[in-house]
Every structure is written in structure tokens, then in C-alpha cells.
């Protein structure tokens, strides 16, 4: 199978959907003439023209709201945020308008829209540029939240997100755009809300999503040398969450570690922990462990950033803890 970069997978997904559906357009800062701040829309202006690939000024609130309004009467916009850190100035439009429109209109107006862009840390960018808001968006009924971890998933999930009739938050990573992976030439889609078992195992379940899952995969390699068999679940979609995939795995391994690149308080890991204790409490042989960033804004210094971020060593330690090793 051919191998392409994550950014190419994103670009292919958007381009294929724009070819099949005239109502889809792409809007955002630097998406057109610059070919995307991270080149995820390379060539799209040339193919689709300026009416469907629109450069915007730095006005996230304004263009996010315009996109939501257009989605009320026939468009299916893709809104790119250069990073989700910048979505905060548009969050009123996402939470109060995109997410609520259908319910507060009594079901009259659905909002088929995708807000996409990178999430979480990307090197020494410090406090304002290293945040992960998956749990914030997932907290809000009306939204769906998708966080792929590789090119194959990114393409299949993004195509499904664009065709979805509800608003979708689609979160990528600056540090994944160059990642290469096998992506078939033929068209395919990955349904939202279905987790993927990245690695089968018997001793412990590790649940993660997004780019940080790579640390879990590294840890699993290490642990295998010690005879520990890890099962790794990639959530792919945070909301709706594939609870059954998690519960079934915990029933098999009886131990759970959750790895998330975000603050611990009210995190996705916290929600999983609640669901697991409520539904499969009797299957647990150890308290659940969660690995997150430090409970502080992201520091700049490389020494501190390394401590702030979760890594494979943290995963190894957590796995050993739930195994009482």
C-alpha cells in the first residue's frame, strides 16, 4: 500500500468531499494562497477556486459564526483553526450557536460543520499555544469530538466528519502532520464513535487518543520485554465515546491505565474512570491510573516541558502500579 503524510491524508479527505459535494467549502487563516499554515490544504485553492477555499483575516469569532450561519441554510463548511488554542475567541459561536442550534430551535436547524485544526502541545510553545481542549468540547452536548492519531484514521474520520449532519470538532497535531502511514488509494470512511484496538493484550488495558498514544505504543514494546502484555485502545472519537470497547477490554485485562495529553481536572480520563467504575467495577483488580500533563500551564523551558508532558516512562510506571509490580 502507498504511504502518505498525515497532512496529505487531511488534504485528500477534504478534496474528495469537496469534489463529491458542492456545498462543502474550506475557510480559515492561510488556507488558500499560503496552502495552509501546515500545508494541509496544499493545492486546494488551485483546484476549487477562491469561492470554496477562502482565506480569512485573523477573525476567528467572525468567520466561525459566518460558517455556522451558512450551515443553517445549506452549506457544509470546514473551518480551519490554525490551532485550537485560537478557537477560544470563537468559542461562543461553537458552544452557543453550533452546538445548541438544533435543540433550541426544536429540531428545525441542524448545523453540519467541521471545525478542524491542531490540538495540544507542539514543542516549546509555552502556556497559550500548548493546550488540549478535547474535554471542554466533549463536555458540550450537541458536539462530536474526533481526535485521530495516524494518517489512515485521519482521512477516514475526516470524510465521515464532513458528511456528518452534526457539528464536529476535529483535532489534529502540528507534530503529526509530517507522520507517514499507509493510506489506500480507494475511498473509505471510518464511522465516528468507534474505537480501534491498536494492539491486543491480556494483562492491562491502556486507553488513549491523538498523538500521545505513540507513548503508549512505545511503553508497550518495553513492557513486552518484561513479559507484560498491553492492550491499547485508540478512542479515535472522544464524543460519542465507544464505552463498550473500553469495558470489554477491562473485563479481559482487569486493569486500566488512561493516557491523555491534557490537564487532569475534569479530563477525558476522569470521565472514562467514572464510566468504568460504574459499569465494570467488579472486574477491576487495581485502582485505575491516569497519566496526563502536569496540572499547570505548559512551561517553556525544555527541561520543564519534558517533565510537564506525559511520556512512555510514565506509562510503564503506571502499568507496573496497576500490576502491583
Amino acid at each position: 500500500m502507498r504511504t502518505i503524510q498525515f497532512r496529505e491524508a487531511v488534504c485528500e479527505a477534504m478534496s474528495e468531499e469537496m469534489r463529491r459535494d458542492d456545498t462543502v467549502y474550506l475557510m480559515g487563516e492561510e488556507v488558500a494562497e499560503y496552502n495552509g499554515a501546515y500545508k494541509a490544504s496544499k493545492g486546494m485553492l488551485d483546484e476549487f477556486g477562491p469561492d470554496r477555499v477562502l482565506d480569512t483575516p485573523i477573525s476567528e469569532l467572525g468567520f466561525a459564526g459566518i460558517a455556522v450561519g451558512s450551515a443553517m441554510i445549506g452549506n457544509r463548511p470546514i473551518v480551519e483553526f490554525m490551532t485550537f488554542n485560537f478557537s477560544l475567541v470563537a468559542i461562543d459561536q461553537i458552544i452557543n450557536n453550533a452546538a445548541k442550534m438544533r435543540q433550541m430551535s426544536g429540531g428545525q436547524f441542524n448545523v453540519p460543520i467541521v471545525f478542524r485544526g491542531p490540538t495540544a502541545s507542539a514543542g516549546q510553545l509555552a502556556a497559550t499555544h500548548s493546550q488540549a481542549f478535547e474535554s471542554w468540547y466533549a463536555n458540550c452536548p450537541g458536539l462530536k469530538v474526533v481526535v485521530p492519531s495516524n494518517p489512515y484514521d485521519a482521512k477516514g474520520l475526516l470524510k465521515a466528519a464532513i458528511r456528518d449532519d452534526d457539528p464536529v470538532i476535529f483535532m489534529e497535531s502540528e507534530q503529526m502532520y509530517g507522520d507517514k502511514g499507509e493510506v489506500p488509494e480507494d475511498e473509505y470512511m471510518i464511522p465516528l464513535g468507534v474505537a480501534d484496538i491498536k494492539r491486543e493484550g491480556t494483562d492491562v488495558t491502556i486507553v488513549s487518543f491523538g498523538k500521545i498514544i505513540k507513548e503508549a505504543l512505545k511503553a508497550a514494546e518495553e513492557l513486552e520485554k518484561d513479559g507484560v502484555s498491553c492492550e491499547i485502545i485508540d478512542l479515535r472519537t472522544v464524543r460519542p465515546m465507544d464505552h463498550d470497547a473500553i469495558f470489554n477490554s477491562v473485563k479481559k485485562t482487569n486493569r486500566l491505565v488512561i493516557l491523555e495529553e491534557a490537564w487532569p481536572f475534569g479530563s477525558v480520563a476522569s470521565e472514562i474512570t467514572y464510566q468504568v467504575q460504574e459499569n465494570v467495577f467488579d472486574f477491576l483488580d487495581a485502582p485505575i491510573q491516569r497519566i496526563t500533563t502536569a496540572d499547570t500551564p505548559a512551561p517553556y523551558s525544555p527541561v520543564l516541558l519534558e517533565k510537564w508532558l506525559p511520556n512512555a516512562d510514565d506509562v510503564v510506571k503506571a502499568v507496573k502500579k496497576v500490576l502491583y509490580k
Partner: peptide, 8 residues
């Protein structure tokens, strides 16, 4: 912005 979006 929603109003401008309808016009868009």
C-alpha cells in the same frame, strides 16, 4: 456573524 453567514 450568523446573519452574515446566512448571506454568505
Amino acid at each position: 456573524p450568523l446573519g452574515a453567514g446566512l448571506a454568505f
